[in-house]
Lab assay of single mutants.
Amino acid sequence: MSRVPSPPPPAEMSSGPVAESWCYTQIKVVKFSYMWTINNFSFCREEMGEVIKSSTFSSGANDKLKWCLRVNPKGLDEESKDYLSLYLLLVSCPKSEVRAKFKFSILNAKGEETKAMESQRAYRFVQGKDWGFKKFIRRDFLLDEANGLLPDDKLTLFCEVSVVQDSVNISGQNTMNMVKVPECRLADELGGLWENSRFTDCCLCVAGQEFQAHKAILAARSPVFSAMFEHEMEESKKNRVEINDVEPEVFKEMMCFIYTGKAPNLDKMADDLLAAADKYALERLKVMCEDALCSNLSVENAAEILILADLHSADQLKTQAVDFINYHASDVLETSGWKSMVVSHPHLVAEAYRSLASAQCPFLGPPRKRLKQS
């Protein structure tokens, strides 16, 4: 649940008159999402009104509101027999009622949201009550392989729920002597030191190019640089560091992050930047690179990204790559990247197969709970 924001200063709310007192009302909304995959969808019983329910879910471990999704594969009634019906059901509720908006969509073979439908307002739910769409999607369109909505005969539904909580009022009075504290510009100011090479005390040599930097900042941000300058190493004695395995453009992006906490060109060089972040123990930059690479996972590059993640101990990226390969196994196994990995990294192939087997055979063990970014 997000923290209630402070109200904007009255002088910034309007260029008009300023009242002596004010009130700011925040209506709290808890948002969460749920993904439900139905394997072997074409084998569902086709009687009209037949119901399939998901397991229950909530916004978190401490949330007492429990929900589930309900599907009628062949419609709810005679009117909707040519459609799939989809509903959000409130299973248990400690209150007399709650209000919530919802959005349903289908994830296609690429994991993209399609055929989205959402409620136009927050509906009133009581325990045992459901709301949804009797005519969510035509069955003939859903079952047509050309539309790519049932890869490997799996129907994957994605649901986003927004639950309306209580409202909170914050009130106060205006004073004539309003003090406005300026925003912190530390990142910009440190970035200026790097860009202008002011007050530098060490030189970093990268592929024949020299960059002036500040030992204190490098040591504070990177345990690797800290070790170089702290001990009686040649880098500490000469205040000069030779860097041979990072390209200059990648190095500059890494230094921008060290000084400012930002990497504006990360998406263009996420793979190389991940390697640099791993070498210099820049954990936050490493996770930022993992996130960017996750966003660009595809059938063509899944094997290469899995190898990269394994090489640099990028655990979150590795998990996402394995899950992606499992979901698109029939396509990924035909790529040149996968065939190369079979020869060069057989242990990763074995890991992917083990994960695929456990996903398809849940009876082999208890269900695993899916539970950071600093």
Rank of each mutant, 00 (worst) to 15 (best):
E253N: 03
V161M: 12
V30L: 12
S42R: 09
H328P: 00
R139D: 05
D130Y: 02
S236A: 13
E46N: 04
E160K: 08
P17L: 02
Y83S: 14
F41N: 08
F57R: 00
A314H: 06
V322Y: 11
S14G: 12
L86A: 14
N108H: 15
V98F: 14
E145N: 03
D152I: 12
A11S: 10
M288T: 01
E300N: 01
R198M: 14
S197L: 13
P182L: 03
I137C: 14
P366I: 14
S167W: 11
T37I: 05
K28S: 13
W67V: 11
I307T: 08
N174Y: 04
S15C: 04
E79Q: 14
L274Q: 01
Q209M: 14
K95Q: 10
L333M: 07
C68H: 07
W131E: 00
E351A: 06
R70G: 11
A227R: 13
E112Y: 12
D188S: 07
R138D: 09
L149K: 06
K268R: 02
V164F: 10
N196F: 12
V224H: 13
H328C: 11
N301C: 06
D291F: 13
R354W: 08
P362M: 08
T200V: 12
N196K: 11
V332I: 02
A277C: 02
Y83K: 02
L282R: 00
S374D: 15
S92Y: 02
I217Q: 15
L190C: 05
S162V: 05
A207T: 11
V71P: 03
E290I: 10
D188A: 02
H214P: 02
S340Q: 13
V250N: 12
D166L: 10
F133A: 11
C184T: 01
K103Y: 15
A207H: 15
Q120K: 12
F324M: 10
F136T: 10
S298P: 00
L76R: 12
F363N: 13
K238E: 04
V71K: 14
E290H: 05
Q360V: 08
G192V: 05
N196S: 13
R185A: 06
K115M: 04
P264L: 07
V18N: 07
K53H: 04
M35I: 05
K53P: 02
S33Y: 10
R185N: 04
D140R: 04
K135L: 15
W194R: 06
E242G: 02
P94W: 14
N244M: 03
Q120H: 11
F225Y: 13
V342C: 13
I52T: 05
E304Q: 10
V181P: 06
D188I: 06
D77E: 07
G128E: 09
A292D: 03
M1P: 00
K318Q: 07
D267Y: 09
